[in-house]
Design a protein around this nucleic acid. Structure first.
Lengths: 148, 148
DNA sequence: AAGGAAGTGGGGAAAAGTGGGGGAAAATCT
DNA sequence: AGATTTTCCCCCACTTTTCCCCACTTCCTT
């Protein structure tokens, strides 16, 4: 569904272009907005409406009687914002989310299957470099990934 | 499916010729693009669409709530690009993937069963020489190879 | 030696990305 | 409640990138 890596910038008016390949996903569904929320490693998660629902469902399944899932739900639900695309395919991201992800201007957008992620470019580069080095180790740990 | 070793070069516009033997695979399926992504040992993996789907299926199962699987899906999905073949059978490989595989110009393309791989020629030669020496050791370690 | 298939280079059109002005709606103040 | 300010979104114009096609060369085959 979503894949690839794109470098974009937030303009002076606070707008961010969504890569056109990602926007195409919305076209098929006759909707024009994404759900943006807090993500892991201080990036932002972005879902199309149907995938957001699936993600929501997985959160709702977590027990409200335990502290950990409760905190998670607060972070994800509380951070969630519906962002409309303008005619040029740009969205406005609320300041509170930009702060969370320490995004100033230069961002990198990464497609990750059912969602995509928005990173401050500097932080992403650091993360990527570290992960590239340990890719094989991580894969060995998980073990069940088969490439065939 | 894919086998053999080919030496090609990336031209000034960043295009790489896919060996015609490999392109023939697409013809049978009436499609005209490959999926290219980060691979192990810093080479690039290339899949025809149906094989990519099989590969993706195993990735999709990875949980977004655990660090190891999260990192892997970011690497594989984030690195993935659908590369269209032009009339001459060339694809454009994004710069980010070339950097990952430290590819400048001279590359070696290796068929590996359901996928093929793109290597920087220098790195491939080194890798091949080392592996040729320890082929038997590796086989012993795996142990369960059957040839029938 | 000729013909065809594979490899190579470059030009041009179309699409994606970028920036800014203006007007409507919403929020705020008096 | 009305007036003023602010915000947000649409549109237009421009730049950059992508990709698609055509022409030429080289190599292999017959």
């Amino acid at each position: 569904m979503f894949y690839g890596e794109y470098e974009h910038a937030i303009d002076k008016k606070g707008r961010l272009i969504i890569p056109s390949k990602f926007r195409d996903v919305l076209k098929d569904k006759f909707v024009d907005s994404f759900m943006v929320t807090r993500g892991y490693e201080k990036c932002l998660f972005v879902f199309p409406p149907d995938q957001w629902q699936a993600y929501e469902q997985s959160l709702r399944a977590l027990s409200p009687h335990k502290a950990d899932p409760r905190a998670l739900s607060r972070m994800f639900y509380g951070g969630a914002q519906q962002c409309l695309c303008d005619r040029q395919g740009r969205i406005n991201i609320p300041k509170i989310l930009l702060d969370y992800a320490s995004i100033n201007k230069e961002v990198t957008i990464i497609g990750v299957s059912t969602r995509f992620e928005i990173w401050d470019r500097g932080r992403w580069n650091k993360y990527r470099e570290a992960e590239e080095k340990t890719l094989e180790e991580r894969a060995e740990k998980i073990g069940e990934i088969r490439i065939e």
